[in-house]
Every structure is written in C-alpha cells, then in structure tokens.
C-alpha cells in the first residue's frame, strides 16, 4: 500500500475497499465486520439488531432536494433498512468550523428532525465540536444508527437466474450535486432523490423469503453497487440498458457534462436481488409506493462464476461495467 492517504482512499471505490481490507479488517476483523454489509447485524436475547455508521463531508451543504442533514439521517437509516431492520435510534455528531452561520446550522438540524420523523427514528445522543477555521469545510456530520431486524429477513446466497430490481430512476442525486458543484447554469427539474427507502422495504415483508439481498447504490452508483454484489457472490450479472430507469433530463445533463449516470450516486433507491418466481409480485408492491413508482427489473445473475457486470446496450452490443477507478470530472469539449 502507498504511504500517504489520498483523496481516492475515501471515494468508495477500489482503493477504499483496499484500505478497509488491508488495514481496518487486519486490526478490527471479526465475523460480523468481515461480512462487509451495510450494517453489522448481531443477536440479542430479544432478536437481531443492526448497527451502522456513516460520516457526511459533502459539498455543497445545500442542494436541490436536500441538504447535509437530510442526507446524514437517511444515509444511516437507509443502511439499516436495506439490512432488513426498522431504524430505531440515531446518534448525531457535529464537527463545525468556527464562523459557520447559526441559521444554516438550524436549517440542517431542522431537516434532520423531519427525516427522523419520516423514518420513525429518534436522535437520542449526540456530540458537538467546533474547530478552528480551515480545519473542516463548514460542517461534517457523523450519524450512527441502530435498528431491529425483522425476524423473517436474512441475507441469502444469490442463485443463477435471480432478478435484479432497482426501485426508481438512477443518478438523480449525483446529477443534482454535479450541477451545483460545477455551477452549471442549467435550469430544469434536477433534484436529489435523497429520501427514505424504509417505507418500500416494509411493504415487502410478505416476500422476504425470496429476497436474497438489498443494497443502496450510493457512492459510485448502480454500476459500483452491482460490482460489489458480483464480487461478493462471485457471479456474473447482466443488466439491460433499456430497462434501467433514468429520467431524460438526467441522461441529457450527464451527456453534456461527460458523466456516466451508471456511476452517479442515488440517495433514495435500493437494488434488490430477488428469486425470479416472485420478482413480478415484488415489483408490483414496490411500484405501489410513491417513491417506488419508477421501479424496474433491470437484469439478472447468469450463473457464470466470474466477478463481472455486463450491460446489454440498446443496440444489442455489450459493454463491461468495470468498478470505477478515479473520480469523474466534467469533460472539456
């Protein structure tokens, strides 16, 4: 491993995984952690609990469709939800730069409360630190969350033929952030999908036995999340370009900026791997939710023991979706 920590060690891609495997697992490794899931799940006398944590260091702090506070609550409660857990309690740690505006902090905290109300979780502990100017960029927030896992749900082995479902149109958070970050003066309905997915997952209780796994495609987007699943399961997956839900405006802006929507973050979507016998029923149930109306079956696992994700393109060609290495920056021309 290289001697210095670089920004790319934190981008959620290949190098983050390498750092986790080679350093954190080396010293912290235990059965629960080594499963590498969105939340650690452990047994208690009363049942299973899921525990997760996430830190939010985003720029800009406020964006169309949300802000760092909303993201901090949903980021953690969604990780619990995709682990099959009902989010119960959340902690909130704030590291604030001296000189940060109090009314902006209140806006952030207010939206954290709204997000908690929606998921039914409560913030029951917290911490506040203020650091000198320049030590952080505005505000960093860490949230941890604990939830109780539904007794009918567990993570299961993926089998050949299992279907892949995504619960709504992709890349909306990533596109909204890119427009803000690069100050692109384009007007249009660009808004982050930042929101809770817990309401969708509770609807799927009758089908838990046929749901193999769930994952929220946040950093690195759909393509990165599918690569992680393929790698974990040691199996090839195959998705169809024409089946992937994406809004035309988002597709258009990605073309303009030279960004690939398959690698842009979603903050209110879930990828589900589902037994093909129940996938239509699961899809219908997801579609009955307001934030699941755009859900689609986008592909399946093929059974080939190769850790690769293929995309069947609209014109009948084939493309490999490799895990992305390096950040995507807007192109020049």
């Amino acid at each position: 491993m290289e001697e210095l920590i670089r920004l790319y060690h934190g981008d959620g891609g290949k190098h983050t995984a390498l750092l986790i495997r080679e350093l954190f697992y080396k010293y912290f490794g235990n059965e629960m952690l080594l499963q590498g899931l969105d939340a650690g799940v452990f047994h208690t006398a009363e049942g299973r609990l899921a525990f997760t944590t996430d830190s939010f260091v985003i720029k800009p702090l406020f964006f169309p469709g949300g802000d760092i506070g909303k993201l901090a609550v949903y980021g953690t409660t969604n990780d619990l939800a995709v682990s099959g857990a009902k989010p119960l309690y959340v902690s909130a740690g704030f590291i604030i730069e001296e000189g940060f505006k109090l009314d902006e902090l209140e806006r952030i905290v207010r939206s954290m409360r709204v997000a908690c109300q929606e998921t039914g979780a409560c913030i029951i502990t917290g911490d506040t630190k203020v650091v000198e100017k320049g030590a952080v960029d505005g505000i960093f927030i860490n949230t941890s969350g604990i939830g109780i896992v539904d007794c009918a749900y567990c993570h299961k082995e993926v089998k050949p033929g299992d279907h892949i479902i995504v619960t709504g149109s992709i890349a909306e958070h990533g596109a909204a952030i890119a427009l803000e970050r690069y100050k692109i003066p384009v007007k249009g309905p660009f808004s982050s999908d930042c929101g809770s997915v817990y309401n969708i997952i509770t609807q799927l209780k009758p089908y838990y036995s046929g749901i193999k796994l769930m994952k929220d495609p946040t950093r690195g987007g759909l393509a990165t999340a599918l690569n992680e699943i393929s790698e974990r399961e040691g199996m090839e997956s195959n998705i169809c370009e024409h089946a992937i839900p994406i809004r035309r405006e988002v597709e258009g802006i990605c073309r303009l900026l030279g960004l690939d929507p398959l690698y842009l973050a979603c903050e209110g979507r879930v990828i589900l791997v589902v037994d093909p016998d129940i996938s239509s029923a699961v899809l219908q149930r997801i579609k009955s939710c307001e934030n699941g109306m755009g859900a689609c079956i986008i592909g399946s696992f093929t059974g080939r023991r190769e850790e690769v994700v293929y995309l069947q393109t609209n014109i009948g060609g084939k493309r490999i979706l490799n895990p992305l290495e390096g950040p995507m920056l807007p192109r020049i021309c």
């Binding site: 670089r6 790319y8 290949k14 190098h15 030279g258 960004l259 690939d260 493309r319 490999i320 490799n322 992305l324 290495e325 390096g326 995507m328 920056l329 192109r331 020049i332």
Partner: peptide
C-alpha cells in the same frame, strides 16, 4: 499506469484513450 496513478495524460481524462480502455474494457 491506472486512473488513480496515471503515468501519462491518456489515463487521466474520461476522454483519454487509456482511461476509456481501462474503465470500459478488459
């Protein structure tokens, strides 16, 4: 030479030929 450690500029840009081959091919 990889996108995270580009030796030459072709591995840098999303429009650079080496980066395109790296990210989209085998």
């Amino acid at each position: 030479c990889r996108p995270q450690n580009p030796l030459g500029p072709c591995m840098v840009s999303s429009e650079g030929s080496c980066a395109i081959y790296f990210n989209n091919g085998r």
